[in-house]
Amino acid sequence: MKCKKCGEKASVNMRQHKLALCKEHYLEWVPEQTERFIKKYEMFTRDEKILVAVSGGKDSLALWDILHRLGYQADGLYLGLGIDGGIGYSHESQRLAQKFADERGLKLHVVDIEKEYGQPIPVLSEISHRGHGKPCAVCGLVKRHEMNRIARDLGYAVLATGHNLDDEAAVLFGNTLNWSSEYLLRQGPVLPSSDGLARKVKPLCRFYEREMTAYALARGIEYIYEECPYADGSQSIYYKELLNQLETTRPGAKLTFYLRFLEARKRGDLFIEQNIEHAHLHACPKCGQPTSTDDYCSFCRMIEKVNAVSAK
């Protein structure tokens, strides 16, 4: 496969966009697209101070890298969760986040949960008996709370996270399976600021997880490859695998699933009963069955076409 821009050998192929690019042009394309989404969803401007939630994983480091390359005022926030899992998970992810910041001269705020609240995440979870034996619920709760707190205390208008399209599609899939209307109506690339909390934005929400991995690899970003020890067997990973199977046979399925949802929600189409009279149905002049076109219905047009072809 050849790069669409220069004809050299392609390194990344995005079947959903029918676009293959070489490494060099891919590294140009990603920030261009990010800039486009930042503007399209009115996420932030170059005058605003942005706090990027950095986990040491590929998505958040790639996000920070892109914002920095685009000239935004983006500082990092690392939350020390105190998760070891036999692989020194938190320790290693903090090291990589710090290394990334130091190499680029960026500012990284570090908050250690154990120092702030006396216990690391797994113990907070155990003691509080929340989340059915897994610390993920408490972890999510603590992360949201702390990100809001730090952004407010340090005067950041915007909080940016590295959620990619696969993250969003997996959440959407879960919420759709349960028809969780209140969650569905809240999910999106931007959560406006309210009650003194910073605006929350997801600038990578239209990139596939695979594209962010390719970006991190192509940029030579060193990220934590090990999975959080508690994420093993998690629902979101299961949904992502299912969606990737779908994507393999139907390129673009994930993107369509997410974008059509955003469009429907924006139009106010979600969970509002359609007014049948508004549908403007007419009787087909040939068979009399209702149709949305002014002319023959789809069935009659199909038969007419078949007859026309057969008559030749």
């Binding site: 998505d59 993250d167 695979r210 990973i237």
Partner: peptide, 8 residues
């Protein structure tokens, strides 16, 4: 592997 558990 490209999938991660959503730690961003």
């Amino acid at each position: 592997a490209v999938i991660s558990g959503g730690m961003w």
